[in-house]
């Protein structure tokens, strides 16, 4: 941690942002033609791709299907070229399994699965470039893909990371800030109702700062939801213009 100042005296971070500034978010939906829904999202330098298939009949063992709602099947993987060192095991290791499990639980809460009994919805997410905030980029990309596929959801699911340095909460951490050893909190939020779908925090933080940290993460998520909203509306307008003429 020596030499890297996460927050300078003037309040600037390593990449020149202010404490509560988010990185630049760019996204596109319907990038794949054959999938039911797909989205590509860039959050700063983190690039994530999400593809949704479904709802369709439960493949494989029929015993996995639930009689009253759909099963959501998630797979999270990182491309071998996504990190500085080549990843030898893109999926199947514990971290990826845990992330897949969390994604599955997050979306099971957000998608109206009761409308599709005995069927399966597949969500595949891949990180093409990892620069901090992997989980958040996945959740955001998967949300866009689900909206693109026309699967009914309660609300958008937006996720963002937040950190804490010298009594100031930072929003949207990059890789250097995450691995610097300070606190990092990942939060998935349904912005309109303010419900937290997933909360994950590592590294030490005093209990009194928890409130401020969660607040910062929630504000960042709400800001992010506006960006996603714009992307979806723009896409809808584009499509409608094409079909009207």
């Amino acid at each position: 941690m020596a030499g890297l100042e996460l927050l300078s005296d003037q309040g600037y971070r390593l990449d020149g942002r202010k404490a509560t500034e988010l990185r630049k978010v760019q996204a596109r939906t319907s990038v794949f033609a054959q999938a039911d829904g797909s989205a590509y999202l860039e959050q700063g330098n983190t690039k994530a791709l999400a593809v949704v298939y479904g709802p369709h009949e439960t493949r494989g063992s029929r015993s996995k299907s639930l009689h009253d709602r759909a099963v959501i099947n998630c797979q999270f993987s990182m491309a071998t070229f996504s990190t500085a060192e080549r990843k030898r095991r893109p999926h199947g290791d514990r971290k990826s399994s845990e992330m897949s499990l969390h994604l599955k639980q997050t979306f099971e809460a957000a998608v109206l699965t009761e409308l599709y009994p005995r069927s399966q919805i597949d969500i595949y997410v891949k990180i093409l470039q990892a620069d901090g905030g992997n989980y958040s980029a996945c959740v955001n990309a998967a949300t866009l893909a689900l909206v693109d596929a026309g699967i009914p959801m309660r609300d958008y699911v937006c996720a963002c990371t937040a950190g804490f340095v010298e009594d100031t909460p930072l929003a949207d951490l990059c890789h250097a800030e995450e691995s610097g050893g300070g606190t990092s909190l990942a939060l998935a939020l349904l912005p309109r109702s303010g419900n937290i779908a997933l909360l994950q925090m590592d590294a030490r933080l005093h209990q009194d700062h928890l409130d401020a940290l969660i607040e910062a993460a929630m504000t960042a998520c709400k800001g992010l939801s506006k960006v996603l909203d714009d992307v979806v509306r723009q896409h809808l307008e584009e499509v409608s213009v094409l079909t009207r003429d």
Binding site: V147, P152, M153, D229, L236
Partner: peptide, 8 residues
Amino acid sequence: KLCVPGER
């Protein structure tokens, strides 16, 4: 009118 998931 356009709408998005979660809009009242």
